[in-house]
Design a protein around this nucleic acid. Structure first.
Lengths: 330, 330
DNA sequence: GTGAAAGCGCTAACAG
DNA sequence: CTGTTAGCGCTTTCAC
């Protein structure tokens, strides 16, 4: 039914060798040059392709990784989520490894037996799924979420430091009335960024004003609402540090409408370095996340773990402050 | 290594039946009530999960579909591509079928033996891959691309008609100087939309002006360039039909900057009904593509084909003109 | 309905 | 280096 029905036997017969030799050829084990050539020819002539699941059953690899992403509303509008998928996909493509994408909505139906290992991009609401994967002892890497109670591989971005540096940059420009449009507080990176923000302000001796800290769900809509609140305040902020470029971009829109001049009257910093938000006359100052590197590291760690069991690695990658047009001295 | 090492044998022993009976239980074959209960209990107690690849090797299903998307630059910024992924993913999720996403960059490394069937979302530059899949006789559905020489299942959107209706709508509003910002001409839907546009104009007796037809690669950047050209013309258009909402949205930006009032001085129609482009004061008039339905149909057809070989189906879905704010009488 | 047994196509010892 | 052989875990005849 599926695939040409040519099996290892057919190849062996045609090449005049045993199936073991063919298997060795496939798995790149040492072979006499002469046999190698014969098998190669037979494989080519027959258009033979080994059946992945048969290999697997016999102890081989699938060369297929799973990528599990929690399926929150708006995931397909999230620069971050899409970048993760994109970067993991291209990183795997380079290594001729297949990607088994699983977006976790409700069902924990992910079949681990179809992959050699899995990358979990964030863990939001699917903690029990992670536990299951750990129990199944399948090679695992978690991106951007520290499950401190679990002994698993992690690759994360230093959100705290990124937020700290951005806030510090604002402070260095003389700002004291600094607001933070934070992300969804249930998401770990939002919490970390908020902490970084708070920490920078504290260190500079700026007292925290609750009115200046507004949570959003990363959406433009909520950003807009919170902005309205911010600028109804008796003392509006002179600078805003945003949880994402998308949100920052909405700040720019808002400012334009309200005739608030950026950066002269209002400084803005985003988070992501989302090229989508680079249109318009103002180039956004932002915090770049090394998403590509994160994906590559995750893939590397997973490969190592598949080859042989290893002690868990915890990798924290630094962000980079990208200075452009939207911050000025107060 | 992977998965708990509990096999069908363990279950059989624990339930006091043969492995065949356990197999039948898994495959929902008729069983005596008593045995069914025993096996069910054993499965539960042991936390048994059949190994997908072993089932497959023995002739079973994988419950895993492949989705192949050509990996052109900017795919992750494409509303269309993302919607396809999203809708296929959620459609499969409902049926507890796994998604094996493969973005085709260069290598034709997709392993068909890991899936029961594959959905090809458009075919751009990977025609030879399609031929291979056809030859392998794996159940196949192609989305939005007619490979007329191939006898395969297709689900497509009627781009011609959608474009025709949009153009007609403009004409009904008295427009005669109508431009078209077309998509990449190598992409089939771009060609079809262009044809629809031309056809509507011809029918209305409006002569085609080459200057009014500009190809873009769907990007804002190119849209902007072509717009500049359009409005340097001695007689600029009074209406523009765009290949996508993204492009239409750039037209709106451009108009605002140049103080061209929409829709009073310029009417605009997009394509996609991309909610992303609904921000701002003006609501875009656009052509909605039934992407969700397309995904569902594709999944349905694939399921049918996996169950039993069927004659190829060709399904063409209609678009819908969504009338909002950006078209007025000339 | 059920069990015994024969593979599915491949890998991995094990001898040679 | 190479061939032989014993499974991997499951489905499926085929008898009973």
């Amino acid at each position: 039914m599926s695939s040409s029905k040519i099996t290892i036997k057919d190849v062996a017969k045609r090449a005049g060798v045993s199936i073991a030799t063919v298997s060795r050829f496939i798995n790149k084990s040492p072979l006499k040059q002469e046999n190698r050539a014969k098998v190669e020819k037979a494989v080519k002539d027959l258009g033979y392709q080994p059946l992945i699941y048969a290999r697997r059953l016999a102890g081989g690899k699938l060369d297929s990784f799973g990528l599990i992403i929690p399926g929150y509303e708006g995931i397909f509008y999230s620069f971050y989520a899409l970048e993760i998928i994109r970067q993991v996909a291209s990183s795997l493509d380079e290594k001729a490894i297949d990607l088994h994408l699983h977006i976790y909505w409700n069902q924990d139906s992910f079949k681990t037996s179809l992959v050699d290992g899995v990358i979990l991009a964030d863990v939001i609401g699917n903690e029990k799924q992670v536990k299951r994967l750990v129990k199944e002892e399948i090679p695992l890497v978690i991106i951007n979420r520290n499950l401190s109670d679990l002994d698993v591989n992690c690759v994360a971005v230093n959100n705290f430091k990124g937020a700290y540096e951005a806030s510090e940059f604002l402070i260095q420009h003389g700002h004291k009335k600094i607001a933070h449009l934070a992300g969804d507080s249930r998401v770990q990176c939002s919490q970390e960024r908020l902490e970084g923000f708070k920490s920078a302000l504290s260190k500079a001796g700026i007292s925290l004003k609750d009115d200046y800290i507004k949570a959003t769900n990363f959406s433009r809509k909520e950003a807009r609402e919170k902005l309205e609140e911010l600028f109804k305040l008796k003392v509006p902020p002179t600078a805003i540090f945003c949880c994402s470029d998308e949100v920052a971009s909405e700040v720019l829109n808002f400012a334009e409408e309200k005739r608030i001049e950026v950066p002269k009257e209002l400084s803005v910093i985003g988070f992501d370095d989302n090229p989508h938000c680079l249109y318009g006359s103002l180039m956004l100052t932002t915090v770049r996340q090394p998403l590509r590197e994160m994906a590559q590291q995750a893939v590397r760690i997973l490969k190592e773990n598949i080859k042989s069991k290893q002690p868990p690695q915890k990798i924290i990658l630094d962000t980079e402050l990208i200075i452009r047009d939207t911050v000025s001295f107060v």
